[in-house]
């Protein structure tokens, strides 16, 4: 690295250390740019793929109020995808390129969305646990060093915390309901608990990207720190539902002032990431199909806009000649 590059690198790190935001036109190390593109686009893809498991229940929501809540929630996720794709575009990648990476399997998305939604209670469990875990990850991102990402996250977090409360309220209603509803509620918690813990990513000593991300203040807490915070929060909230978490080892540790919890099945985590989760193929196929089926619509929109521009230009030429 020559001296100028070293200076730039130092200045960059100084700015980060001073908590100044890095903006799209500022100099940044190529690795910082690529890390952010990878992280933001993964996040955007997770929002878009995340629409599918919940979208699965829109037409079957059990009341008009629940239908409106769910529809608005899934729409919010589309909105999050939109802000995040836009934030990633400021780093020099197009939305189409990001879609291409998703469809080809090159880009990843949050593994949790490869699990199926089998009952109405899953809508509550996703809101409470999955959005709850997402918020733990995302609140620190409101202060992340890259400006557009941080600003997008402020809005995303407001909506996500609303979703989490809606999810909890959905489960609370079920927990106060009939025996069948209570079973539905417990079953959903059983299925979504462990995948939610996996959302924080591998254990700190096995997280390849963490160190540099912490130095650049893209990340501010480690995977394990955030996971612990989440466990501590949920272990208390579940008491209000009169339900249990499916972990016999979950116990309050008076010394650490945290909840201890059982071992996560990391083999399952790896398998789901590698494409072997219960719904990996369906989720990706659904997105690829939507994209392929929509090609003629996008082509037509561009063709029409081009025709309109030509007509406008022709009309202006004609009108200019008339004036002469």
């Amino acid at each position: 690295m020559d001296q100028t590059a070293n200076q730039l690198q130092d200045q960059f790190q100084q700015r980060i250390d001073l908590e100044q935001k890095i903006e799209p036109k500022d100099w940044m190390p190529e690795k910082y740019r690529q890390t952010l593109i990878r992280q933001i686009s993964q996040h955007a893809h997770s929002e878009i793929i995340g629409m599918l498991p919940e979208g699965n229940w829109i037409t079957r929501a059990p009341s008009l109020k629940r239908k409106a809540i769910l529809l608005a929630k899934v729409q919010d996720e589309a909105g999050h995808g939109l802000y995040l794709y836009s934030a990633a575009e400021t780093l020099g990648i197009s939305r189409d390129e990001m879609y291409e990476q998703l469809h080809s399997g090159k880009a990843k998305y949050s593994s949790i969305f490869n699990y199926p939604t089998l009952s109405w209670a899953d809508m509550g469990a996703i809101g409470w646990l999955v959005d709850g875990a997402a918020i733990m990850n995302q609140v620190p991102l409101c202060r992340t060093s890259f400006g557009p990402y941080a600003r997008a996250m402020v809005r995303v977090c407001k909506e996500e915390s609303f979703h989490q409360r809606q999810g909890f309220e959905c489960l609370l209603q079920l927990s106060k309901g009939s025996e069948v509803q209570r079973q539905m509620c417990q079953d959903a918690i059983n299925r979504w608990w462990w995948p939610s813990l996996m959302m924080f990513g591998p254990k700190d000593d096995e997280s390849p990207n963490s160190k540099l991300s912490m130095q650049w203040k893209i990340k501010r807490f480690t995977n394990d720190e955030l996971r612990q915070k989440f466990v501590d929060m949920i272990a208390e909230q579940i008491k209000l539902l009169n339900m249990v978490l499916p972990d016999p080892e979950l116990t309050w540790n008076e010394q650490t002032k945290h909840y201890d919890y059982g071992a996560i099945n990391w083999e399952e985590f790896k398998q789901v990431i590698q494409g072997n989760g219960p719904c990996n193929k369906e989720r990706l196929e659904a997105r690829k199909k939507a994209w392929a089926d929509g090609a003629w619509v996008r082509d037509a929109a561009i063709a029409h806009a081009t025709k309109q521009a030509k007509r406008k230009a022709a009309a202006q030429t004609y009108s200019a000649k008339e004036t002469e």
Partner: peptide
């Protein structure tokens, strides 16, 4: 609502 998540353009 059946289109939600499957539209041609975000």
């Amino acid at each position: 609502s059946q289109w939600c998540g499957h539209g041609p353009i975000l």
